[in-house]
């Protein structure tokens, strides 16, 4: 089974040289730590920055420089700053190559729910709906099942939807899967020590298993 770091490390393997990437809050933010230094990529923060750098050292904390999770950050050399309208213009316009975000549920059609639990959580969608509606490639980082064991990879989402038919790839604590439109979740890799049967049991939506399924390699 993968922990949060493991999920982040596996997603980092999907990153390619030259990509502009938007990272969501939580596990997606951790992905930045595991992108190989040999790759030249630019991280976008939807509050108006291309070129997110590492967290600042104690003496260099700047309240005017935060990421979308409101954490203090630095800028890489060659960064650019802009307004929220420009930022979502580049998101909607399809200029961001890869979006990595968390989810509460994903359906076999690629629908995602990650912004609201009726009656419980009313925080708002932030930029998630804009991102999922327009991203060319969306990878979701999530737990395969809830704490009480219920599958989060479903035939249909039960929670309020964030976007329809948008998720392309999912990395969970148990597996790596592609969403194949009109077909279902295609199992690509198993987490270390996890069997195909265990993944089948944990997946409510249609799971496609073809041939030998390799273990995730790091």
């Amino acid at each position: 089974m993968l922990d949060k770091i493991g999920i982040a490390k596996r997603i980092a393997q999907e990153v390619q040289d030259g990509m502009y990437i938007n990272l969501g809050i939580g596990i997606p933010t951790l992905v930045a730590n595991y992108i190989p230094k040999s790759l030249n990529v630019v991280l976008q923060s939807e509050n108006g920055l291309l070129g997110i750098g590492p967290f600042p050292t104690e003496g260099h904390v700047d309240p005017d420089l935060i990421n979308a999770g409101k954490q203090t950050i630095t800028m890489m050399p060659g960064s650019s700053l802009f307004s929220s309208a420009e930022s979502f213009g580049m998101i909607r316009g399809g200029h961001v190559d890869l979006t990595i975000l968390g989810a509460m549920e994903v359906s076999e059609a690629g629908d995602i729910a990650n912004w609201k639990v009726p009656g419980k959580m009313v925080k708002g969608m932030g930029g998630a709906m804009d991102l999922v509606a327009s991203a060319k490639h969306i990878i979701v980082a999530m737990q395969h099942c809830s704490k009480d064991g219920a599958s989060k990879l479903l035939k249909k989402c039960t929670l309020p939807i964030t976007g329809l038919k948008c998720v392309k790839k999912i990395v969970t604590d148990l597996a790596v899967l592609d969403v194949v439109p009109g077909v279902g979740f295609k199992l690509l890799e198993r987490a270390p020590g996890i069997s195909v049967d265990e993944i089948k049991k944990a997946t409510e939506g249609k799971l496609i298993v073809e041939g030998e399924i390799p273990e995730i390699k790091f």
């Binding site: 939807e46 307004s83 929220s84 309208a85 979502f88 009313v122 969608m125 932030g126 930029g127 804009d130």
Partner: peptide, 15 residues
Amino acid sequence: EVELIPQGTLAERCR
């Protein structure tokens, strides 16, 4: 009363 709006939509509606 609260109206929650996607962030990019909020930015563009203001623009």
